[in-house]
Design a protein around this nucleic acid. Sequence first.
DNA 1: TATTGTTATACTCTATAACTATA
DNA 2: TATAGTTATAGAGTATAACAATA
Lengths: 152, 152
Amino acid sequence: MPSRPASDLTSHLGYWLRHVSNHVSHAFARKLESRDVTVAEWVVMRELYGADALAPSRLADKLRLTRGAISKLAERLIAKGLVMRASHASDGRAHILALTTKGRGLIPKLAALADQNDAEFFDHLTSQERSTVERVLKEIVKIRGLKSIPVD
Amino acid sequence: MPSRPASDLTSHLGYWLRHVSNHVSHAFARKLESRDVTVAEWVVMRELYGADALAPSRLADKLRLTRGAISKLAERLIAKGLVMRASHASDGRAHILALTTKGRGLIPKLAALADQNDAEFFDHLTSQERSTVERVLKEIVKIRGLKSIPVD
DNA sequence: TATTGTTATACTCTATAACTATA
DNA sequence: TATAGTTATAGAGTATAACAATA
C-alpha cells in the first residue's frame, strides 16, 4: 500500500481504468443500439428486473442519480413501451415503476449482449486475473461506500 | 479463460469496471472544478504537455475523438487562456495547438489532483493487486488495439 | 412544512454533416 | 477532388431549481 506519487502523467490507475471502461461501455452501447436501448436505460431496466417494481426515488438512490434524471429516463422507457408507471396504493404522492411484459421479455436479449460484450473484453483473462480484478473493484466499492450499481 | 455465461445480471466485469470508473472520474471532476477545468479539458492539456504542440487532427487521432469535438474543446481551452492556436508554417490549412505559459504552469497542479484522486481510490491495494490490475488493463488496451489515451 | 414526483433549464461530451479554405 | 479545420445541429446524460400534489 505505497503512497506513490504518480509523477509520470501516464502512470495513474484511474487513467487506465477510464480508458478501458470507456471502450467497454462504447462497445456495449453499440450492441444495445440494435435493440434501441441506451446504456442508461439498460441500467434502469436491469434494476427493475431485479426488484419487480420500484419507486422512482428508490431507483434514484440505488443508481445514485437525481429524481429528475430518473423521471426523464423513465419517460423514455415508457415511450418505448418497456416500462409502466402507476400510482402508489396508499400514498397519493408516490409512484411505482415496473417493467412491462415487453420490457421483461427484452431483458434476456439485452443480458446476452452484455455477456457477449464481457466475453469480448475479458475472456482472455486467466481465472486468477479475473478474480483479482473483480475482488479489487468490489472492495473499492465497499470501502468507498459507493452504495450501488451503475450499469453493466 | 473460461467462456462464462454471466447469467446473473450483476456478474459482469464490465459492470463493476464502469461502476468504479464512474466514481473515480466523478471524484476527479470535482477536484478539477477547483481549477475550473473539466476532465475532457485535462485530457487534452495532458496530451499537449507530452507533445509540446499538436495539430488538431493529430489530437483527434490520439484521443479517439472527432475533429469537431477537438475544435470545441480547444475553443474552450483557448477562451480560458490555457491553450493557443496558430497556423502551420507551410500548410495553409493546418493549425497547431499548444499550451500557453499559463496552461503549462497549471499542469503540475492538475497532476497533483490526479495523484490525490488516485491515492484516494487505490492506495489501499497491495502492490501485487495494483500491478495485476494495471497489467490486465494495459493488456486489454493492447489486445483490442485501443490506440491511445483517454483521460487520467 | 416536508416529501414525492415532474418539468424547465442548462451544460458537458460527443457525433454527424455542412461548409470554408487551402492543396 | 482531397484534406484540415470549424461551425451548426442534435441527442445522451446529468444536475439544479422551480413547481404541484399530497402528507
